[in-house]
């Protein structure tokens, strides 16, 4: 039980740290990566909360596909900004 609690606290610290990085950084790319990291920590937290289905979905969708959607749009906007 205490081990579970410790893991939960670590995960929570990681999530809130990643959220702070995402909010405070200057570069948008770093913010997007930090949001993806937050999703990964969230999926670990879902495993700890005994929700493996949700953890799988979050890992595949939240941290994988969402990050790539952001990078597609970000790369597009960067290239057009240069023109």
């Amino acid at each position: 039980m205490t081990l579970l609690m410790l893991a939960t606290l670590l995960c929570g610290a990681g999530m809130i740290g990643a959220a702070l990085v995402a909010l405070l950084t200057r570069q948008t790319a770093t913010a997007v990566l930090a949001a993806g990291l937050l999703s990964l920590f969230a999926s670990v937290l879902f495993v700890l909360l005994a929700a493996p289905d949700v953890a799988m979905t979050e890992a595949a969708i939240g941290s994988g596909l969402t990050t790539f959607l952001f990078f597609y749009v970000l790369g597009r906007i960067r290239r057009e900004d240069k023109k």
């Binding site: 493996p52 289905d53 953890a55 799988m56 979905t57 595949a60 969708i61 994988g64 596909l65």
Partner: peptide
């Protein structure tokens, strides 16, 4: 654990 949504995302 798994199902349609997860497999679709993969």
């Amino acid at each position: 654990p798994g199902g349609g949504f997860q497999g679709g995302a993969i």
